[in-house]
Amino acid sequence: MREITSEEVTQAVENLCISSNCTLNEDVWKALREKLKNEESLVGKEVLEEILENDRMAEEEKLPLCQDTGFTTIFVEMGQEIKVTGGDFYQAINKGVGNGYRKGYLRKSVVKDPLRRKNTGDNTPAWVHIDIVPGNKLKISVMPKGAGSENMSTVKMLSPTEGVQGVKKFVLDWVKERGANACPPLVVGVGIGGTFEGVAKLAKKALLRPIGSKNPEPFYAEMEEELLKGINNLGLGPQGLGGSSTALAVHIKTYPCHIASLPLAINLQCHAVRHATIIL
């Protein structure tokens, strides 16, 4: 058993909250610059220039890229040979979130109760997903997710016979209707299969994949390309004001499912693609 202290976890999460909110990964920079080069609409170009300039300023001044620093979603892959010592693991994570959001001057956007809506004051609790994996490493990914794009996400239980065409049609229609409000250019996370609750997680986890990476399964790699092309042909463009840059990528993640169901989830990610990972 390898031991990791809860303080190490807290510190790691604190750092990740700040770095994920204040910097863009290289793949996102690259994709946005590429879009600026190819955008057809003048307004669209203007929007992309503003986004790139904003992101540059944010990184330079270590400020959050967007004021909506999100609900903090955390993916943990815990090696089964790891033992966390010195306190409750979830508490350690939430302490890191609270510290990060305070020290990083990040916006506290979480209410304690969905209907009585009193702010918790430190952006906790995070939503933590834990997967147990072989080995003795602890991998933590922090993904702050703004409400603008999260609100434009959905789960749909299709019927199995709707198949590939049904999935494609639903995704295209959905992005056409809701995409403009989610701050495009988007990354479109698509979960297919699994169960009702599982498919949403697939769609979100798909967003962690680097932009420009290929789906390991050729069947889905092709589907991603077709969907991306279809979405960019919709004409929504940057911020939905018209243009050819509606999405940077489509990422599909799948899981086996029941003979009688075809769960589908779409998690839209705005151009402020924020996530940071550490392996302890």
């Binding site: 001044e61 603008g148 403009a180 409000n181 705005c270």
Partner: peptide, 30 residues
């Protein structure tokens, strides 16, 4: 940021008002 509803668009026409989009996510620049 994002679209306005039909009623709001009609009201803008009726009462002579405009809706401006500021770039969502350009928070530092703004």
């Amino acid at each position: 940021k994002g679209r306005r509803g039909k009623d709001t668009i009609e009201a803008m026409k009726k009462y002579k008002a405009v809706y401006f989009v500021a770039v969502g996510g350009a928070a530092v620049l703004i």
